[in-house]
Amino acid sequence: MARYTGPKTKISRRFGELITGNGKWLTKNSNPPGMHGGNKKRKTPSEYALQLSEKQKAKYTYGLLEKQFRKTFEEAARKKGVTGENLIKLLEARLDNTVYRMGISVSRQGARQLVSHKHITVNGEVVNIPSYSCQPGDVIGLKNKTAANKSITDNLRGKNPKFNWVEWNEAEMKGTFITYPERESVPENIKEQLIVELYSK
Rank of each mutant, 00 (worst) to 15 (best):
A2T: 10
A111L: 00
Q193G: 07
E74D: 15
K79S: 13
T44A: 14
L26H: 01
K201Y: 11
A58H: 02
D138L: 08
G110V: 11
G137S: 03
R157S: 04
L52E: 11
K55T: 03
F69A: 02
G124K: 09
V122A: 00
E170N: 11
V186S: 05
T83W: 10
R94I: 01
T27G: 14
G110L: 12
E170F: 00
K67I: 09
L64S: 06
N39P: 01
G23H: 02
P136L: 04
I129E: 06
W165H: 00
T5C: 08
S116D: 12
P33Y: 00
N31E: 14
S131M: 02
T61H: 15
M35G: 07
L50I: 15
I104N: 09
F73W: 12
R78S: 05
G23L: 05
V82K: 14
H119S: 08
S185V: 08
S151Y: 10
K143P: 03
V127H: 06
P45I: 03
T176P: 05
I104E: 09
L156G: 02
T61I: 15
K67Y: 13
I120R: 06
M173P: 05
I104T: 09
D96C: 13
W165P: 00
S131H: 01
N164C: 05
E182L: 07
P45F: 10
K8E: 12
L87V: 12
V106P: 08
I88Q: 01
I120A: 05
K71C: 08
V82Q: 10
E66A: 12
A171I: 10
N149T: 11
K43S: 15
L91C: 01
P136S: 06
E74R: 15
E66D: 15
K57V: 06
G175V: 09
E170L: 03
F15S: 01
Q51G: 04
N169S: 09
V126G: 01
K8F: 12
K118R: 15
I120W: 00
E197R: 15
K59P: 06
V196C: 07
K55E: 04
K79T: 09
I120Y: 00
G34A: 01
